[in-house]
Computed example of a mutant assay.
Amino acid sequence: MAEHTVTTTWKEKMAFETDNPLGHSAIIDTTEENGGDASGLAPKAMMLSSLAGCSGLDIVALLKKMRAEVEDFKMVVKGELTEEHPKYYHTVWVDYHFTGNDLKEDKIEKAVNLSVEKYCGVMEMFRKFAEVKIDIHFHKK
Rank of each mutant, 00 (worst) to 15 (best):
M1A: 11
A2Q: 10
E3C: 03
V6W: 04
V6P: 00
T7M: 03
T7A: 10
T9P: 00
K11G: 01
E12M: 06
E12L: 07
E12Q: 13
K13N: 15
E17T: 12
N20G: 08
P21R: 05
P21L: 12
P21N: 11
L22C: 03
L22V: 14
H24P: 00
I28E: 07
I28G: 13
I28R: 05
D29G: 10
D29E: 11
D29V: 04
T30W: 10
T31M: 10
E33D: 13
G36P: 00
G36L: 03
G36T: 04
D37R: 02
D37C: 05
S39L: 12
A42H: 13
P43E: 11
L48D: 04
L48Y: 08
A52L: 05
G53N: 10
S55I: 03
G56H: 10
L63E: 06
K64R: 15
K64C: 04
M66S: 14
R67A: 09
R67S: 13
A68F: 08
E69W: 02
F73E: 05
M75G: 03
M75P: 00
V76F: 04
V77Y: 09
E83V: 01
E83F: 01
E84K: 09
P86R: 07
K87G: 02
K87A: 14
Y88E: 09
T91K: 15
W93D: 14
D95G: 08
T99G: 02
T99W: 09
T99P: 00
N101Y: 03
N101K: 06
K107S: 11
K107E: 10
K110P: 00
A111P: 01
E117T: 07
V122K: 07
M123A: 14
E124H: 14
E124W: 02
R127W: 09
A130Q: 02
E131P: 00
K133R: 15
H137Y: 15
F138H: 01
H139F: 07
H139W: 04
K140D: 13
K140G: 01
K141S: 15
